[in-house]
Write a protein that binds this DNA or RNA. Sequence first.
RNA 1: GCGCGAUUAGCUCAGUUGGUAGAGCAACCCGUUUACACCGGGAAGGUCGUAGGUUCAAGUCCUACAUCGCGCACCA
Length: 724
Amino acid sequence: MEYKEPNIDKKLLQPYNPAETEDRIYKQWEESGFFNPDVCIEKGATSPDAKHFSIIMPPPNANGRLHAGHSLVMTLQDIMTRYHRMKGEKTLWVPGADHAGFETQIVYERKLEKEGRSRFDMKPEDLYKEIYDFTIESKKFMEADVRRIGASCDWSREKFTLDPSVVKTVQQTFDKMFKDDLIYRGDRIVNWCAKHQTSLSDLETEFKEKADKFYYFKYGPFTIGTARPETKFGDKYVVMHPDDKRYAEYEHGDKFIAEWINGPIEATIIKDDSIDMEFGTGVMTITPWHSNVDFDIAEKYKLDKEQIIDWKGKLMPIAGEFEGQHISKARAQIVEKLKEKGLLVKVDDEYKHNVKVCYKCETVIEPQIKDQWFVKMAPLAKRALEVVEAGKIKFYPSNYEKIFKYWMENTIDWNISRQIIWGIPIPAKICEKCKKGYSDLEDELTTCDCGGNLQKDTDTFDTWFSSGQWTLLALGYPDLKDVNIYHPTSVMETGADLIFKWIPRMVIFALYLKDEIAFQDVYLNGMVNDEKNQKMSKSKGNVISPVDLIDIYGADALRMALIVGNTPGTDIALSKDKIKAYKHFANKLWNIARFTLSATEGIVCDPTFNEYTDSEKSLIEERDNLISEITKEMDEYKFYLVGEKLYAYAWTRFADVIIEESKSILNGEDVNAKMARAQFLLNTLEKITTVLHPFMPFVTEELWSIIHKDTGLLMVEKWPKINN
RNA sequence: GCGCGAUUAGCUCAGUUGGUAGAGCAACCCGUUUACACCGGGAAGGUCGUAGGUUCAAGUCCUACAUCGCGCACCA
């Protein structure tokens, strides 16, 4: 028999080619303007009275390419956005780019290091300018990656976290909080990284297990234990538990003279129940300037505090002959000296403990007392807790609500000062004499109440201070044009690790600034791991770049692999086999269209056709039931189920069974049956293409253009409505 | 130490308010019929971590334990 080529779009005769299709389709979308809800309204795709749906994109770091985790975030948000846009809602997804303060500065410092330069030798303005240029340049690559995944976000509203308007608003927030007495200047202990020359929040530090020596020294009548003899120069308080029978003869407040490193010292006895009697000898001396625990004890009893170690990690004049030595070198010599003086009792060699290190460079954190700005968290957290307890914000998965609450019930005041240049400057002045701090938005204050000179605060804000305001800032706040329509946002979708870093801060700031919740729902995704479910990391060498995967398998395939079987909050193992399977699926859809269109040549899809036979009626019922089901599941964020069901329906049901049995009908003599079956196939093809669009936007859009040569884009087609 | 999560087929995971265990991938057998070999058909594969409890009925609820993962806090 002679093979007759069907009269359908030539593209369908070749396998689906994502590489050829995706960039072209994305351009079409972008040029259409439909990513912008205002254009959707203008062009009649959305009713001006429709309800709103809004998502703020967690701004990716501008300084790097997208990683696998980002691709999951982008896909989830794009699915939500496309789904709601197709439902005819006023849909806005605001993209952003994060200057990522400390992170970017470190990336840039490494670059400087390679070039043999150092930030400490540069003028702050020059450094800032260089990092700015570098970031703006890098940002383009990040944005290109977001486009490759297919994100249908409104680029016309893109916000950069260092946009002048953002900087201004963040500074105004600081001023407002200062005036509301929610921010104070305080001498508190901070985590100091001597390499990066900045303080860090607790969330920017990690614990690392270290084996050190543990020393016992004679200190007056006591034997004290310590792992850090180099901090002990000024120790003049000796602390023990009030119930410790071994030391019952000593009273709180007793004084005695102890021979110590650089001569005799007058020591005071402190009794405090925070002491662990089991540990060491049950007696320790304290160094309030360089230890959190010691600081707390010192605060409690109003004890003196003295700095021993300077900001570069070197010993101060109090160390006498050891002055100027780096603490890493001084320890052995100090121990030697104490030994010579007969004060060394014994040394334990294998003392394992966790030390706090900088999460970037692993430098041991030196606790230091530093004058910094702090936010009073308790009153703010209380309100955040209230709205969650009132059920105004829902968590997916729900168990994260517990974590949120725990965090809000156990707040500590938040240090927002960072000694880095790459960030939003704190608009404040500090008195040279008495150290009092003032908010000074207009840069007009010169003299302190005490008569001292005021100096400009050179610190910048912790990034979370500005990103905490992001739901508002991204919508242009304090300009209320978009805020009034799109805030509170519908859903905040982000990585589960941000449950305490970011989510609570956004809730807090939206309540504080606008008296509104920041978002109605919180959807938290897990990590994207490698095929063996191992965390991806540069050191393991198992990092998979989403762009590389898109090059090989296409964006639709990657998206499906990320979504199917991935429940909120749980990690996903990203395997190439899985992505390959969905690349095959994209091609399967292609062939379903190819068959359907060529087998029904000459017949036009008629959505109102109603002369179906009983067999089509039951097929329609099955199909429409499925659509009702998945519509409900879309609203419940169960994309992992919807993706799987659509895959199963399109392939094992529609292609393998329905199309197969249709062949004999379409080749048969019964004209009515033929027509009914053709209409069912054509209508179902359209519906499958439509409901799969949020998941696989590229291949479905391309198919739509083939099915409907003369109508508009699938991205603004209506999601099918099923009338039961 | 405190908290959270997980434990279901070889692998990755679903399993809705308790009602006879599901999917994808892989592996196995058969099949080159003109949508597609990026295919089709078929079969196989699980005492649902362990031990108790509640119930007519438990993968699902409760308790304890074990193993794994994650987070937080801390150790002078």
